[in-house]
Design a protein around this nucleic acid. Structure first.
Length: 440
DNA sequence: AAAGTTTTTTC
DNA sequence: AAAAAACTT
């Protein structure tokens, strides 16, 4: 876990998964060590009891904090003459030379057979109790009232099965809707992010389902394409990790540099005065999940309409997303903020989205308590109420923090202006070669 | 398979 | 027909 982006919900989800795994293995008579510590501190003491020759791990596409940790670990293990073997994850390649064959290679990787854990041979390792106690994760209290998805591989498999057998029916239709997507999307993202399910096993399960239910091929294939995009973005971040902090195209460095704390706080609290924006934020805070389109809208609103630097909101969202995945997080935020240069600038109209994605206003009414008794037209646009009615019926709901039309026009003008400069276009050519699959 | 495509304007 | 602008899933 990267310290800078860590949060309570991540910790809880991860811990739940580990205890789940520990219980499952205990039934088979295998005692799994679930320990928690900084690697070097732990390993240094472990070496007092065991002669370790090789360390295995997956190849993590993390953020700067985890990258620095890995560099320390690599140097330390080299010094101890221990081999560190990292396995490629999800078709994401370290030090990738060219992306040209990436999509084809990804599909190939997804079809390769799964690693057969059953063939592993374990031998008993005896460690003294005080050593174990020093690193043991304490029992983790599960809050029954919390509305986050439950951790653990077993829960991940439940989501996978219910998605493939039932929920996928509405996948394409509901993918952009904040309410319906909660059921019709797979909801596998946290299990994938935390390694409780592997990308390849999910892909192959979908492949099997396509054969079982040819009538659902369209939806299932669409989902597989989403899985590929998932990895596509992680690969981008693997190749260009500076995008955690810097605009991908430096031409954008000259604008949107000042923060406005009042506006940032309003957005973080779900109190911007724009019902769908506020509903999405409040829902995300309560459940750790909001669908992709609404994430894009939240970022578009704060970076374009509110003209806030994306760097000011990236760690906050990382903490809220139960499925936080650095390799998706930063490319997506820059894409929605329009700072990648190579992507078109999407400036969502949050009112239009409101009418389109939540036509009956049900999602808004569910999450923005203040608006639940308003007639439909005002649920989308409460500022249309007369001042008198507003004071009477929604006294605690805030006025809009920005002028939607004006702010949108300003952002478009600024960003398109920069995007069209010679400097931006030249740098984009470099980025296209580096980060897309058409490059040389 | 560049997570842009469609519509409008200009030549 | 090409370029620019408008507007998106």
């Amino acid at each position: 876990m990267a310290a800078s982006d860590s949060s309570f919900i991540h910790w809880r989800f991860a811990a739940q998964g580990l205890f789940d795994l520990k219980q499952a293995l205990k039934k088979q008579g295998i005692q799994l060590l679930v320990l928690h510590a900084e690697f070097i501190e732990f390993f240094e003491r472990l070496l007092e009891y065991v002669d370790v020759k090789i360390v295995y791990s997956h190849c993590e596409t993390g953020n700067q904090v985890s990258f620095n940790r890995d560099k320390h670990v690599a140097a330390y293990l080299k010094m101890k003459a221990v081999i560190w073997k990292e396995y490629q994850r999800d078709g994401v390649v370290r030090r990738l030379k060219s992306r040209k064959a990436w999509p084809a290679n990804w599909y190939q990787t997804m079809h390769n057979s799964l690693f057969a854990s059953a063939s592993l041979k374990f031998s008993e390792l005896r460690l003294p109790v005080p050593f174990l106690n020093a690193f043991e994760i304490p029992d983790f209290p599960i809050d029954d009232k919390a509305r986050f998805q439950p951790g653990g591989r077993q829960n991940g498999l439940k989501y996978l099965n219910s998605f493939l057998q039932e929920r996928v029916v509405g996948y394409v239709k509901h993918i952009s809707k904040p309410a319906e997507s909660r059921r019709s999307c797979s909801r596998l993202s946290p299990y994938l992010a935390w390694g409780m399910l592997s990308m390849r096993e999910v892909y192959q399960a979908v492949e099997r389902q396509k054969k079982l239910q040819p009538e659902r091929r369209f939806q299932l294939k669409f989902f597989q394409e989403r899985l590929r995009w998932h990895c596509h973005f992680i690969q981008k971040f693997e190749t260009e990790c500076r995008m955690e902090f810097h605009n991908l195209n430096p031409v954008f460095n000259q604008v949107r540099t000042q923060t406005n704390e009042r506006i940032l706080e309003a957005w973080k609290a779900g109190a911007t005065g724009f019902p769908l924006v506020d509903a999405c934020m409040r829902c995300l805070k309560a459940t750790g999940y909001i669908n992709f389109r609404m994430r894009a809208m939240l970022v578009s609103f704060i970076t374009h309409n509110c003209w806030q630097p994306w760097q000011a909101i990236a760690p906050y969202l990382a903490q809220l997303f139960l499925d936080y995945e650095p390799g998706i997080h930063y490319p997506q935020i820059q894409m929605q903020a329009g700072s990648s240069g190579t992507h078109i600038i999407r400036t969502y109209d949050v009112v239009k989205q409101s009418y389109k994605q939540d036509p009956m206003g049900n999602f808004i009414r569910l999450w923005v308590e203040e608006l639940k008794d308003l007639p439909l037209a005002f649920v989308h646009e409460p500022w249309k109420l007369s001042r008198e009615d507003r004071m009477k019926s929604i006294p605690s709901y805030p006025e809009p923090v920005v002028d939607l039309k004006q702010s949108r026009q300003f952002a478009q003008q600024e960003l398109w202006g920069l995007k069209k400069t010679k400097q931006a276009k030249e740098y984009n050519q470099y980025l296209l070669n580096l980060l897309t699959n058409q490059g040389s």
